Amino acid sequence: MRWAVLAVIIATFMCCYAYALAIVQPSVPVFMDVFSIDMPTALLLASALCITATAMSIPAGLLTDKLGVRLLDVASLAIVLAGWAISCMGNDFWVILVGRSLVGVGTTILGVVSPLIIASWFPQRELGLAMGLGFIGTPLGVAWGVPLASWLIERHGWKSAYVLGFVLALILLLTHIALVKPGPFGHLSKPIAKGKLSLWSALKNVEVWKFAIAVFFAIVVFQTVMSSYQSWLMEVKGLEMGVAGTIAGLIGLIGAPTVTFSGWLSNKIWGGAKGVFSLGAYSLIVPLALFIYVQGLLLTAITILLGFTLYTIIPHALAIIPPRLVEPVYSGTSLGVALFSFNLAGIIGPPLMGLVYTSNGIMWTCTLLSIFALIAGTVNVVVKVKQ
């Protein structure tokens, strides 16, 4: 049963969250033409998810602790389904944007409840591997989502790609109702008793916020590289777009096996999940420092190393470490704070580092990103794990 639950969660991230990200690229040029809007306006399709996710992260954690995992799991997919339905029916860009915002609300709640469900089904000795596997859905979903959505939009119009999102969300909602529930480990089947949840009690844990700082600096590096690396290859290394895209794609390609491996590794090495997080953060310094100087096969090798170190951090930042910082009844809140930090870094990091790159060039950009990686690893070292 536990592996079936894990498979459903992987499919959910692949078909709901990752597909919602993947559909942006082929939608932007079509919406610019259909709705007569400019590119910055069309790119609100992506911003709507990030901004909504940032605003909802901590409330999603608090609601999970208050109402219980089972209810919030079903509610999250119902909200995602409603968002896709509004987008499908919309004949105005701003209506579609409302639908996208609802998808962002639902997937944010999923980002909190899913790690808790996984944790309730797997014993401690298997938890790292299970959490790592839980994250493979996102890179895999983006990998097939972009070409499939592009084909649907080109052949059958933009609504066909959004109808597919609705159908996938409906199937997964029914599957979650039938199969997904908290497992035998932990307290997660029981919501906190009415009146027992204190916002201040949930958020005053210093370790949660220390770890949020580590997550923020690590994810600034992650999001900057993910959004800018192809441009760096073209502008700094002089590569053609196709070649640069192929090399940059190696970062995402290595993501799926890396999140699984790093989750497994957290149960095997001294220092556990904290050790893997800091090791990944410190290891980022090497490819960032060498990027300026390498070409050819060495550049490809550095890119693979960069992808490996970036994705080593993700499952520990968003799933494995946060619940271990607090009492079990506040696991959802801790995950919500980590998710808030993740999304905030995604909003602030790429534009900020883009300004640094434009003003001071690639050397200063890589140097500053290396400093951020060093800060992330060091702050994580001093975080005290409760569980």
Rank of each mutant, 00 (worst) to 15 (best):
R2F: 03
A4S: 13
T12V: 12
A18V: 08
Y19E: 05
A20N: 10
V24K: 04
V28W: 06
V34E: 11
F35R: 05
M39S: 14
L44W: 11
A53S: 15
A60N: 07
L67T: 03
G68D: 01
D73I: 00
A78V: 11
I79L: 02
L81Y: 03
G83M: 03
S87H: 01
N91Y: 01
F93A: 02
G99N: 03
R100K: 11
T108E: 01
S114I: 08
L116F: 07
E126A: 14
M131K: 08
T138H: 02
P147N: 11
I153L: 06
L164E: 08
L168K: 10
L168A: 15
A169M: 11
K181Q: 14
L188D: 06
F211M: 01
T224V: 13
V225R: 01
V225Q: 00
S231H: 09
L233A: 11
E235M: 12
G252I: 00
G252D: 01
I254K: 08
G263M: 05
K268S: 15
G271P: 10
G272D: 00
A273R: 08
A273Y: 00
G275N: 12
G280N: 11
A281C: 14
I285D: 07
P287L: 06
F291Q: 03
V294W: 02
V294R: 05
Q295W: 04
I304P: 09
T309D: 06
L310M: 13
Y311E: 02
I314S: 01
V329W: 03
S331M: 00
S334P: 04
L335Y: 00
V337I: 11
L339I: 12
F340C: 13
I348H: 08
T365R: 07
C366N: 13
S370K: 08
L374I: 08
I375M: 03
A376W: 05
V379A: 12
N380C: 15
V381C: 11
V383D: 05
Q387M: 06
